[in-house]
Design a protein around this nucleic acid. Structure first.
Lengths: 220, 220
DNA sequence: GAAAAATGTGACCTCCTGGTCATATGACCA
DNA sequence: TGGTCATATGACCAGGAGGTCACATTTTTC
């Protein structure tokens, strides 16, 4: 975590530095990020950087905690539209709210998810706790869904978690990759075309690809 | 592509070199791979390396083509157990055959998929053609499935491709990551536990997570 | 055998990396 | 005013990267 010196800095200067770091991680990932470039782009000296942080991983950990903090505050102010949702409706609402949040912090989300999804498995222990938080939340959610009889009983918890986690990441990556090509990412995400795509993907997660009697309805 | 000098080399020496390269890419990815380490581990000199290849990306491209070649030969000798399979049965067979192949070339598959999935998006054009081949094959397969009325008609081709591609990659990553921890990866993959896990995942892809009247049966 | 062509070698180059540290600056206090 | 202490700086370091090249060695050709 950053040293006190960094936290004492004026808000503006701190922002400049973390912006440069975010850009660097989004562009190069963690392993290939260069402290020299971060320093150059934030207009501070090399010495100052190491007075603020242990190393670049320290910076990244700080970004991670900031993003987590902001996400928690975002979700604190958001409430599901209805209390009588089943697990799948709730998951859909969470995914969409998550995408709203992501696109309101696109660079930061890009940087973090690039590192977490791309290099996370090889960095091993360091990020394990962050991945675990998601897994735990999902596990609890699925446990409830199974108890309520909403989930296919032949599907065990671990498998269902993998399915939901996979789709959560896939949708997030898709939105970020495609969205960064748009001129207004928020507007793009909120467009009916994209919303329907998300709906359809989650519908397929729920009912499968194979033709059955259940039918897709947009914005159910 | 490698220069003629490399292709003239005795089989054994070529193998030593590509083994060292495979290990390097599997361990460090493409960006962070070190030509110095590759030459050290393959017992050739720096100068020879650059007489054989343009640079490390050239080596990787060669690995890619070798793996593709071997995969094609593998599938040429393999035939689906029955001609009367629907698309989902065929996909399941392909996935399982693919996993057989992957675990018989674990290091190479690991190296290639690490680079392709992890750094592929950022290298842009270079690997696009390889990703495209998979997409094209899937597109054709789905087109047929839709024509046969096997797929939910509310699902369009592009979406179905994304779903199948996502699962193909997810299963492959899962098998590779977990499998590398086992002492005998081939035996592990063939075990009923793992086979059933794959079956269940593909069952969920086909019928969804939600409880319906259709029920999972192992090895259908 | 000699001449020619192909192959192999590692010292050396420049560039950039993460990281250090003696020194300079300037805010605050007596 | 002088002294103290947090902060800021960039020259500097060792290490490793990718890449080159003059020379040594081996193979082929005649």
């Amino acid at each position: 975590m950053p040293k006190q010196t960094f936290l004492n800095l004026p808000e503006e200067k701190r922002q400049t530095i973390i912006n440069a770091a975010v850009d660097e991680f989004a562009e190069y990932g963690l392993e290939n990020a260069s402290t020299n470039r971060i320093v150059a782009n934030s207009g501070i000296s090399k010495g100052s950087f190491y007075q603020y942080f242990e190393d670049k991983q320290d910076v990244f950990m700080y970004l991670l905690s900031v993003l987590e903090q902001e996400k928690m505050e975002y979700f604190k102010g958001k409430h599901p539209p209805s209390m009588n949702m089943d697990t799948f409706q709730y998951f859909r609402w969470m995914i969409k709210a998550g995408m709203e949040f992501n696109t309101s912090h696109p660079r930061m989300t890009q940087a973090v998810s690039r590192v977490l999804l791309g290099e996370g498995m090889y960095y091993g222990k360091n990020f394990a706790s962050y991945r675990q938080k998601t897994t735990q939340a999902l596990t609890q959610m699925i446990g409830q869904a199974i108890a309520r009889g909403e989930v296919d009983p032949s599907v065990d918890v671990e498998l269902a978690v993998m399915v939901m986690d996979t789709w959560s990441n896939a949708i997030s990556s898709y939105i970020l990759n495609e969205g960064m090509k748009q001129k207004d990412i928020m507007k793009w995400v909120r467009s009916p075309r994209v919303q329907e795509k998300i709906d359809k993907l989650l519908y397929v997660m729920e009912y499968g690809l194979r033709k059955t009697e259940s039918e897709f309805v947009a914005n159910p």
